[in-house]
């Protein structure tokens, strides 16, 4: 199991965020989730060891075949790619 950082907040279902530590759009998504006070788990994929990195890439690719970041996965079903403020507000606001 990929270990993710838990951010406490309001329960809006399972919210998983895959990011890169150097990506500014990824930081914007984190900031927005923090502002919305939503509980979520995130992982900075570029900081992982090779094995965990491969696992994370696989998880992301299931929802977003381009395997780009940020990728936000809701309840293992819905996926929001990129910093899409409108969609994030709509789903989690």
């Amino acid at each position: 199991m990929l270990s993710m950082t838990v951010v406490p907040g309001k329960d809006k279902g399972k919210v998983k965020l895959y990011t890169l530590s150097t990506c500014v759009w990824c930081k914007k998504v984190k900031k927005l989730l923090n502002e919305l006070k939503v509980a979520y788990d995130y992982v900075d994929v570029d900081l992982l060891e090779e094995e965990a990195k491969a696992e994370a890439k696989e998880e992301v690719a299931k929802f977003n075949p381009a395997c780009s970041f940020p990728t936000l996965v809701l309840n293992d079903k819905k996926c929001i790619v990129g910093f899409d403020e409108g969609k994030i507000n709509q789903e989690l606001g």
Partner: peptide, 27 residues
């Protein structure tokens, strides 16, 4: 502020990979 964060990302990537890979992509 936005741009300097990305410039920081380029420097971080230069340091860890040896070349300034795109900060918003997984190298």
């Amino acid at each position: 502020d936005f741009t300097k964060e990305l410039v920081n990302g380029l420097l971080v990537n230069e340091e860890r990979y040896g070349y300034p890979a795109c900060p918003c992509r997984l190298a």
